[in-house]
Structure formats: C-alpha cells, structure tokens
Design a binder for these strands. Structure first.
Length: 554
RNA sequence: GGUCUCGUGGUAAAAAGGUUAAUACAUCGCCCUUUCACGGCGGAGUUGCGGGUUCGAUUCCCGCCGAGAUCACCA
C-alpha cells in the first residue's frame, strides 16, 4: 500500500510534519530534570496526584530543573468546568507549585504550550499522520462502545467464550480501496497503531522506582486518534512529553501495564523515550471487604485533597506525611532539623518503596501535631480564624475579633523547647478549648475523679475563698496544696505513693477536681494560665456553677 | 481468564547473605514534672507458606498462597 497516499487521504488538512514541530519546540537547553503533573480535570485533585507532585517537585527543584503542569482534558465527557483551576489551586495551597505550564485563570508560563491537550489536536494529528506514512497506523471503522459498562460486559463475554481478550484489530488488513470506500460512505473511523510486537518477547526496562524489569512487548493496536479527532492518552503522552522536553515521567503504577504501548509508539516515531518512575498507589483498608484497596474518589472523601483543608490540617502536615510515605527517613531528618525547609531534605527517588502504602490517618495526625507545635501562637491564631471563616462559621463568629485572646490561649505551653502537642488540626480547636468561650462552654461534669459530693463541694468552696488571680504560680499552687490535708488528700506526691490507701487521693486529684470544675475537662494546658486568661470573675462563677450542679445531681 | 506488581509487628518502614531483625505512630507499663501536658525509659508484638542454594537466607532461586494493578475511541 502507498502509505503517503493513505496519509493524505486520512489527513488532507494536516500540513505541518513532525520536523516542523521539533523546530517550534526545540530541545530544552538545561541540565536539570524536567517533570510534570498531568491531571485530567475531573473536578478535584487526588491525593495520589499530590503524592506524585511531591516527587516531581523535588526532582525538578533539587536539580534546578522544571516542573510543569499540563491538563489532560482529552475526554470531553469527563471534563468539568473549573477543574483545571482547582488542580492548580491545590498545588499552590500545598506549596508544590509548578514553575511552568497551566495556571488556571492566570496566563500560562513557558515556551512549550499550549499546556492544555484539547488545544493540541493538530499536533497529535501531525504525529499520527507521520505514523500512517510509516505504515505504523491504520484507520479502524469498528463500532465503538459508548460506556464503561458495555466494555466490561464485552470483556467478560470474550473471556467466557475464548479465555482471551482480542488484541489485534480486524481493520489492520483493510486495503486502500476498502478504506477509501468507507470514507466516501462517511463512516466514522479511529486511527490505530499497527503493533509489531510479539507477546512472547520481552525487553529490559529500567524504572526509576521499580528498578530493572523485563517488560513484555506490546501487541495491542491501541487507538491513536478517536473518531472525534482527539487523541487518547497514549499518543498524547508520547507527543507532549517528548515535545515539552520531559525527562522523567512520574505517574501512578496503574500505567505500568500500558508502558510497552507507549514505548512502541516512541519507537515507531523514532523518538527516544524519557525516564519513567511508576509510583505505588496509596491504599486504605476497606471495612466492607476486609482488604486493602486503592483510595477511590467515589468511596473515600480523603481522596480529594480538599478534604484535609476542610478538616483543618496544615498543608505542611499533609506534605510531610506524604514525604514520609515516599522516603521513610524523612521523619528522623525532621526531628534533627525541625525548622529547615523540606527542600533541604535529601529526597531520593531511589528510596521510594514499590509496595502500595496504606494511608494512616492516625499517623498523619501525629505528624500534624508535630508540625502545628512548631508554629508560633500568633500565626496559629491567624490560621485558625482564617480556617473557621470558611469551614466553621459558628466558631468564626465567636473568634473572628479575638485574635489576641486566641493567641494568649495558644501561647500556653507553646513556643518553648518542648511545646505541647495537643492540636493536630484546626477543627480540633473548638472541642479542645471550648471552655475558653462562654458561647461554646456546655459543662456536664460527668466525673470528678471518684470524689464524693461533699468533698467536691468542700474543695471548691474553699478554693473560691483562696483564689486570687494576682497570685504568682507558686503561691497559687501552695494554696491548692493547703486544700489537701483538710479534705483527706495528700499534698506530697512522694508521700502519697508510699501509701496511697491512706488518702482519698493526691494533690493531682485535687488539682484535677478544680480543673474539671473550671473547664469540664481532665486534660487542659496549664491550669494556672488558663485561670489567668479567663479572669477572676469567670473562674469564681464557674466554680460556683459547678457546686450548684453537683448539688442538684443529688 | 491473561499479563504485570507487591508480600518484614496493627500501620509506615530499615536492614541490598552474617551478633539478639532498627526506627516512628498506635498499644501497655514505669519514671519525670508541685497539676494537665511535653519528655524519658521499658514491655508485648513481625520476615505469608513450603522447598532449594549456602557454614549461614528477610535478602538469591523455584513452587504455592495472598493482596494490588491492568486488559476502553477513560485518563
């Protein structure tokens, strides 16, 4: 067959050839790595994309290279308006911002655009035409399946009937005359790769994460161009990543099975492929099935990185947790370098394991507590107010104009060598510090550490007489100690431990009872400072209220 | 069903043939702190199973089992 003639029949309007595009997009003149994140605009950024973006970001930054954002919007059925903006905003929020490419409403940066695939149709067609000219692509007039369900059903059927799923396409043997007639008849067609692979043959491939692997040759006649003129992922990937000068393709492991397809396209085009890094998929434990599975958008709210914003996690916390999943020595590095920028961490793509990690919210929370503990009180107050504005309106109305008060609260046991670590996310603030706000304070006084009614009343009423907000800390605590003996408690911890049964309890219990009376919690930061911030009047009235409540409980 | 990937405590994970299998989170206990925390110390708990190679295997090989991914004109 005359392939040039076929190419012109198929692409009469495509005049530029691939050499033209190589001149328009010359090889980059840099030594650093060029990485990219190429999400499809589905309306949210997946936690796995952020995970990959961190790798992209590190690889590019560490080598003085380029990290760019490209939008893979080649499927009009899937596209959601504004989705590209969300992806960009999320990368910005999590501080792994690309330095080239698509930027939402802002104009793109870089000489290798457009960075939106739907605007690159002609380029893909030119490359496709080239493949036709080389006899490596052919038109396919088969009817397409409209939806995923049909496809899965068809696959099931094929498996039942023959045990195999068809690979080579039937249209690959069509003659020029048949093709010409079909086109004249107005039949829609796709363009497919004419695969020359042999399923029994393998080749060696070096994945940056997986290492050296034997990969089976591709035998699928994959679709290069859909009947609507747009290209699906495989050709778009090859063309874009080549033209845009990507040096490392970081993508999820789900792409690994189709790697040989992409490599065959590179090969057919006589282009040299770049390096690849196939990342593990973040999984979670599925309660229903009792197994682990990939985090999915439909089932798991945490698949969408906005989830963590709503929950009030600091972006640094999420990123540090994910880095930990990638390079597990990060944690130790962070302990040794509490205030260094994460970019100084010796990140290595080689240290990424290749099994799929489970997303552990408990561990994330711990990482987050450590991150929050490093933040100065006034900045934390700002962040919490800002967060509440968007995600907790009720709290916002209470704290909006109380930054100084908030800062005072947060400063307790913070900003020292061993800061308190009780706040993991902003949304915990309300329940953790409700007692600092009358609007939020709803005491129930469930338990008083086992003390009986009269003891509680006695201790509290005596404390009311003694309490003076002007006391220094030592005086304050001495007063609490003085309440111990008359009420059957031991003022000295050592003495108490020697013979605990001789007392109702220790000074710890007396402090605890007062703490509960004022805050309705067993755990709070330093009670001395809490009391000072609340003020004499409020402390006294809280104590009186508690006595009344205990009284009524009978 | 085919192909591929991966199996170290509950979770993450180090140890790329060599003392008693690190470490962090979680859990339990003790200690410190005049209270709550923070912190310190310690306990329990792991190499999926079966073979093979080797003086010696978490590490290399084979089989099994298990888990995950993939087999669209979706990315």
């Amino acid at each position: 067959m005359n392939f040039d003639k076929l190419a012109d029949l198929l692409f009469p309007n495509i005049t530029k050839n691939i050499e033209d595009y190589m001149q328009i997009y010359p090889r980059r003149n840099i030594t650093g790595e060029v990485t990219r994140l190429a999400p499809s605009p589905t309306g949210f950024l997946h936690i796995g994309s952020l995970y990959g973006a961190i790798i992209d970001y590190f690889c590019a930054k560490k080598s003085n290279g380029v990290f760019y954002l490209r939008l893979e919007d080649t499927d009009d059925k899937r596209e959601i308006a504004g989705a590209g903006q969300i992806a960009y905003d999320m990368l910005k929020y999590y501080n792994v911002l690309p330095n080239e490419g698509y930027r939402g409403e802002l104009s793109p940066i870089g000489e290798y655009g457009p960075y939106i695939q739907s605007k690159r149709k002609e380029i893909y067609q030119a490359f496709c035409k080239e493949l036709v000219k080389k006899g490596r692509a052919f038109p396919c007039f088969c009817e397409k399946s409209e939806n995923k369900e049909d496809i899965l059903q068809r696959r099931e059927q094929q498996l039942e009937e023959s045990g195999i799923i068809a690979e080579r396409d039937v249209c690959r043997t069509l003659t020029y005359e048949q093709i010409e007639k079909n086109i004249k008849d107005g039949k829609p067609y796709a363009i497919r790769l004419l695969s020359m692979g042999d399923a029994d043959k393998t080749f060696e491939f070096n994945d940056l994460i997986k290492g050296k692997r034997q990969v089976r040759q591709n035998i699928k006649d994959v679709v290069l161009l859909k009947s609507n003129g747009m290209t699906p992922y495989p050709l778009a990937h090859v063309v874009d990543d080549y033209l845009m000068g990507t040096t490392i393709v970081v993508r999820g492991e789900e792409w690994y099975p189709s790697l040989s397809q992409h490599l065959e396209i590179f090969n057919a085009l006589s282009l040299k492929p770049m390096k690849y890094a196939h990342t593990p998929n973040i999984c979670k434990y599925d309660e229903a099935s009792g197994t682990k599975r990939k985090i999915s958008k439909r089932k798991d709210p945490e698949a969408d990185v906005r989830y963590f914003i709503e929950k009030g996690y600091m972006p640094e916390a999420i990123v540090e947790y994910l880095i930990n999943l990638l390079n597990s020595d990060f944690e130790q590095w962070r302990v040794n370098n509490p205030h260094k920028d994460v970019l100084e961490f010796p990140f290595s793509i080689k240290k990424i394991g290749s099994n799929n990690p489970m997303f552990d919210m408990v561990k994330l929370h711990d990482v987050s507590k450590n991150v929050v503990a490093r933040v100065p009180a006034n900045l934390l107050a700002d962040s919490i107010i800002n967060w509440a504005k968007n995600y907790n309106p009720k709290l916002y109305t209470i704290i909006a104009n109380k930054k100084d008060y908030l800062t005072e609260i947060l400063r307790i046991d913070r900003e020292n060598k061993k800061p308190r670590k009780d706040l993991g996310s902003y949304d915990e603030f309300e329940s953790l510090f409700s007692y600092m706000f009358d609007e939020l304070y709803v005491p129930i006084s469930k338990s008083f550490l086992g003390a009986d009614k009269n003891t509680i009343k006695n201790i509290l009423s005596q404390y009311i007489k003694l309490y003076n907000e002007g006391d220094d800390k030592q005086t304050w605590f001495d007063k609490i100690k003085s309440l111990c003996e008359p009420n059957g408690y031991c003022a000295d911890m050592k003495t108490y431990r020697e013979n605990p049964s001789a007392y109702k309890g220790s000074v710890a219990d007396v402090s605890g009872i007062i703490r509960i009376a004022i805050t309705d919690r067993e755990n709070t930061p330093d009670l001395y400072f809490i009391s000072k911030i609340l003020g004499q009047d409020k402390v006294i009235s809280r104590l009186k209220d508690t006595i009344n409540r205990v009284e009524q409980k009978s």
